[in-house]
Simulated assay, not measured.
Amino acid sequence: MKIYTFHRKQNLPISLEKGWEFLSNPKNLKTITPDYMSFDILSGADRPMYPGQIIQYIVTPILGIKTKWVTEITHVKDNEYFVDEQRFGPYALWHHKHFIKEIDGGVEMEDIIDYKVPMGILGQMVHPFLVKPKLEEIFEYRQKKLTELFGEYK
């Protein structure tokens, strides 16, 4: 069983409180997801984030195929981190840690995703040219969008 790790950091020129308010609001995920993915929250984003929260989405990651994705917020420490885990969706495993910390002149946002692709060896074969580039594309879009929203860190 091959488990992959995706890691990304971004610095933004905003306060910790403003960064946490944006990052921890599930409704903002649509804002930082590419439009072509047709990301829509079906349920679970009507309250502030809490451990045990179930959020259901519809997303179209590849080839126009709509996929239901259900995540659970398993851990939350205000103004520091939260963890979401896939309960149902496109991955065999999805464990996404979101960290935020104050730095000089802003905040550092860090994402660490441990994931496993489905379909065994076939999934591992398509990972380098389908799954990994798609994750990189999504997070490049996210980085660009966050810079548009909050400015460039200097």
Rank of each mutant, 00 (worst) to 15 (best):
D114A: 10
W69I: 09
G151E: 09
G105T: 06
F150Y: 11
E85T: 12
V59Y: 02
T60V: 08
Q10R: 12
P13I: 10
Y50F: 11
L63W: 12
P26E: 04
L29G: 02
I54D: 03
D114P: 01
F129H: 01
I100D: 14
E148Y: 00
I103W: 04
P34V: 01
K154G: 09
I103L: 07
V76I: 03
I103E: 06
H95Y: 14
R8K: 15
G89L: 06
P90E: 15
H75F: 02
M1T: 14
D40P: 00
I54R: 08
W94V: 14
K30D: 13
F39W: 02
D84S: 05
S15W: 03
G105C: 05
D84H: 01
F99D: 15
T71A: 03
W94G: 05
V70P: 04
I103S: 05
K144Y: 10
I65C: 04
F82K: 08
L122D: 03
M37Y: 02
E85I: 12
Q124E: 15
P118F: 04
D46P: 02
H96N: 09
M109S: 04
G123Q: 10
E108T: 10
D84V: 00
M1G: 14
R47N: 10
T33A: 03
L122I: 14
P128M: 01
P128A: 00
E72I: 06
V117K: 11
F99L: 14
M125K: 12
I138D: 12
I121K: 12
T147H: 06
T5P: 01
K145F: 00
D111E: 13
E102H: 12
K66L: 09
G120E: 05
E137H: 11
G151K: 06
Y57S: 00
K145V: 08
F88G: 07
Y50M: 05
